[in-house]
Amino acid sequence: MVHHYVQNYYGELIILLGKAIFCVPPENSTLLARYFYLRGFMNTLCSKRLDALSDFQNLYKTDMEIFPTDLVKALVDSLQKDERSQADQRPELKRLIFKVKTDNEMVLVQADDHVKKFHLPKTHMLQEDFVKRIQESGIVKDVATIHRLFEALTVGQQKQIDPEVFRVFYTFWKETEVEAQDVHLPAEVIEHLDNNECVYKLSCSVKTNQGVGKIAMTQKRLFLLTDGRPGFIEITKFRDIKVWLLYV
């Protein structure tokens, strides 16, 4: 009897949180993230695992800093066969499940074999601190590339990165990284790429003077993935691109 009342109470909270989420403006990401976290937790207590994962997926896109990695892993591991089938039919949940299964989110193994937990910055960053943060996040290690990214994110502004700008960039990057796992390349193409290099964006088919294909972007280069018989035609490496900034 007590369990019944408790479940009803949780159900009412879920409804109230749903109404609150609906009323929060999208730009108030901090409050929205807290609501997604709470509703996801309540759905977990009610054994509504798919609803909980959906909330945590929205949280993942809103505020990575409070993403409950261990809880999400436990939810994924506890999915029943029919729940897993339903999740596989929902692209956003499929990507989330793939992510927690293959990556210990935001935990990076450093060269000295110590494990360091990455935290999103809370203060403005000058270039030196930005380089450190990007390297710790695992996005890229090359300093020259990070310097170009710093310039791109600070065009027309003071030469420092706002923590909210970093959060938006980092969240978008992580989402793109997960989506990249859905791109499967033939062996003939993979052999042209470096270790750990993967396609982050793939265009629609385009006609070029090299034939018809799709333009692919990895973290290091652009190349043409030709249609028909799979082929690799490199367009350029990012390190060879010179960025010209125009100040008005």
Rank of each mutant, 00 (worst) to 15 (best):
G18R: 07
I21L: 15
Q86K: 08
M125L: 15
Y200T: 06
C198A: 06
F150A: 09
K116T: 05
T218D: 00
V189N: 08
T62C: 14
I97Q: 04
D129V: 13
D142M: 06
K122F: 03
N43F: 03
D112W: 00
L224S: 01
G138F: 12
I134Q: 08
A152F: 14
L225K: 01
Q157D: 01
F172Y: 05
K73F: 02
I241F: 02
P121S: 08
V243D: 03
V243K: 03
R221G: 05
K48G: 01
T44D: 09
C23E: 15
A152S: 15
K116A: 08
E191V: 15
F238V: 05
K207Q: 12
F118R: 09
F150K: 06
R34C: 04
L93D: 11
Y200L: 11
I190T: 10
C23Q: 11
R229W: 00
K220E: 12
Y9F: 03
F150G: 09
K207N: 12
K174I: 03
D113I: 04
T123G: 00
F36M: 02
L120C: 08
R90N: 13
P186R: 08
L45G: 00
H114E: 05
L45E: 11
V2M: 08
T171E: 08
V140L: 05
P25S: 06
E65I: 03
P25R: 06
E27N: 10
I134E: 07
K122R: 10
V115M: 12
P25C: 09
C198D: 01
E105I: 14
L245I: 15
Y60C: 01
V143Y: 02
K116S: 10
A180S: 15
F238W: 13
L59K: 04
E234P: 04
K132T: 05
A144V: 09
S203W: 05
Q89E: 10
Y247T: 09
E83P: 13
Q89Y: 00
T145W: 00
A111W: 03
T236H: 01
I139M: 13
T123M: 02
M1W: 02
H147G: 01
N196S: 06
L153A: 04
V168E: 13
T102P: 00
F98W: 07
F238I: 05
V143W: 00
R167C: 06
R95M: 11
D194S: 09
G11E: 05
A111K: 13
V109T: 14
Y170V: 06
V107K: 10
V165D: 15
D55A: 05
V212R: 14
R95S: 11
F41N: 04
D182P: 01
Y37L: 15
F130L: 01
D82F: 06
L153V: 05
L126Y: 14
K101S: 13
T218S: 08
L53S: 09
Q157F: 02
T176H: 11
I190N: 00
D182Q: 14
V189Y: 08
H124A: 13
I161H: 04
L126H: 13
D70Y: 02
L31K: 11
D82S: 14
Y35M: 14
K174W: 14
F166I: 02
N58V: 01
A152P: 01
F118I: 12
Y5I: 05
N104D: 14
K94W: 00
I161K: 07
E151F: 04
V189L: 07
V243F: 07
D70C: 00
L193M: 06
A33N: 04
M64Y: 01
R221T: 03
